[in-house]
Amino acid sequence: MKNLFRAAAIGIASTALVAGGASVATAAPSAPAVASTAVTTSGDVSIAVAPYPIDYKSKIRIQKRGSKLTFRLTARYRDDAGTPVGIRRATIQVLKGSKWKTLKNVKLNGNGGGTYKTRSSKKRKYRMLIKPTALYQGGNTRSVKI
């Protein structure tokens, strides 16, 4: 049912772009979850963003006891009615050197919440990354050093 609503929202957005006199190109059908829409007008190419930004309450919380780390994630966006809707996947990243590396891809519950536990005795910076889809814009949180 959710996929039906998402497909309808994407269809309405692309119809509005075509009705406005712009030509529309979408990504290959083999990757519908990462479909982006490119709008070409008089030689300029711009990328149309997904309709929903990430909610400002999306965050990562880290608790450390000894060498045990517990990550608590909250990832949501707000729909047209203003109600928070949970995102189903998020990535925990760790800063190693000058590059962000993926520590764990976490499946989240229907409310966009999830936990992950690991052990580490080093002080490092961590952040949560939400990959963009056709429905929401994605983004990342501030880094937390623990």
Rank of each mutant, 00 (worst) to 15 (best):
residue 1 M to I: 07
residue 2 K to C: 00
residue 5 F to N: 12
residue 6 R to V: 09
residue 7 A to N: 13
residue 8 A to K: 12
residue 8 A to T: 06
residue 10 I to A: 09
residue 11 G to S: 12
residue 13 A to I: 09
residue 13 A to W: 01
residue 14 S to G: 08
residue 15 T to F: 08
residue 15 T to D: 11
residue 15 T to P: 02
residue 15 T to W: 08
residue 15 T to K: 10
residue 16 A to N: 06
residue 18 V to R: 08
residue 19 A to W: 05
residue 19 A to E: 13
residue 22 A to V: 11
residue 22 A to N: 15
residue 22 A to L: 12
residue 24 V to M: 09
residue 24 V to Q: 02
residue 24 V to K: 02
residue 26 T to L: 15
residue 27 A to F: 11
residue 28 A to C: 11
residue 28 A to D: 15
residue 29 P to R: 14
residue 29 P to K: 14
residue 32 P to G: 07
residue 32 P to C: 09
residue 32 P to A: 08
residue 32 P to M: 09
residue 33 A to S: 12
residue 33 A to F: 05
residue 34 V to M: 04
residue 35 A to M: 13
residue 35 A to Y: 00
residue 35 A to P: 01
residue 36 S to P: 01
residue 37 T to G: 04
residue 38 A to H: 06
residue 39 V to C: 08
residue 39 V to S: 10
residue 40 T to P: 00
residue 41 T to R: 12
residue 41 T to W: 07
residue 43 G to Y: 04
residue 45 V to Y: 13
residue 47 I to F: 11
residue 49 V to F: 07
residue 51 P to F: 04
residue 52 Y to G: 03
residue 52 Y to H: 13
residue 52 Y to T: 05
residue 52 Y to R: 05
residue 53 P to F: 01
residue 55 D to N: 13
residue 57 K to D: 14
residue 61 R to M: 05
residue 61 R to F: 03
residue 61 R to D: 10
residue 62 I to V: 15
residue 62 I to R: 00
residue 62 I to M: 05
residue 63 Q to S: 07
residue 64 K to Q: 13
residue 65 R to Y: 03
residue 65 R to G: 05
residue 65 R to Q: 12
residue 66 G to A: 08
residue 68 K to Q: 15
residue 70 T to Q: 06
residue 71 F to S: 01
residue 71 F to L: 03
residue 73 L to E: 00
residue 73 L to H: 00
residue 74 T to K: 13
residue 75 A to W: 01
residue 76 R to G: 04
residue 76 R to H: 11
residue 76 R to F: 07
residue 76 R to Q: 15
residue 77 Y to F: 15
residue 77 Y to M: 09
residue 79 D to M: 07
residue 80 D to W: 12
residue 80 D to G: 13
residue 80 D to E: 15
residue 81 A to H: 11
residue 81 A to G: 14
residue 82 G to Y: 04
residue 84 P to C: 10
residue 84 P to A: 09
residue 87 I to H: 02
residue 87 I to W: 01
residue 89 R to A: 00
residue 91 T to N: 03
residue 93 Q to L: 06
residue 94 V to T: 11
residue 95 L to D: 02
residue 98 S to W: 05
residue 99 K to G: 10
residue 100 W to P: 06
residue 100 W to F: 08
residue 101 K to T: 14
residue 102 T to I: 12
residue 103 L to D: 00
residue 107 K to N: 05
residue 107 K to P: 01
residue 108 L to G: 04
residue 109 N to I: 07
residue 110 G to Y: 01
residue 114 G to R: 00
residue 114 G to V: 02
residue 115 T to I: 04
residue 115 T to Q: 07
residue 116 Y to E: 03
residue 116 Y to L: 02
residue 118 T to M: 12
residue 119 R to W: 11
residue 119 R to C: 05
residue 120 S to E: 09
residue 121 S to Y: 10
residue 123 K to S: 15
residue 123 K to F: 10
residue 124 R to C: 03
residue 124 R to K: 13
residue 125 K to F: 07
residue 126 Y to C: 03
residue 127 R to M: 05
residue 130 I to V: 15
residue 130 I to R: 02
residue 131 K to Y: 03
residue 134 A to K: 04
residue 135 L to W: 02
residue 137 Q to G: 13
residue 137 Q to D: 09
residue 137 Q to V: 11
residue 139 G to F: 10
residue 140 N to Q: 13
residue 144 V to Q: 04
residue 145 K to P: 02
residue 146 I to R: 08
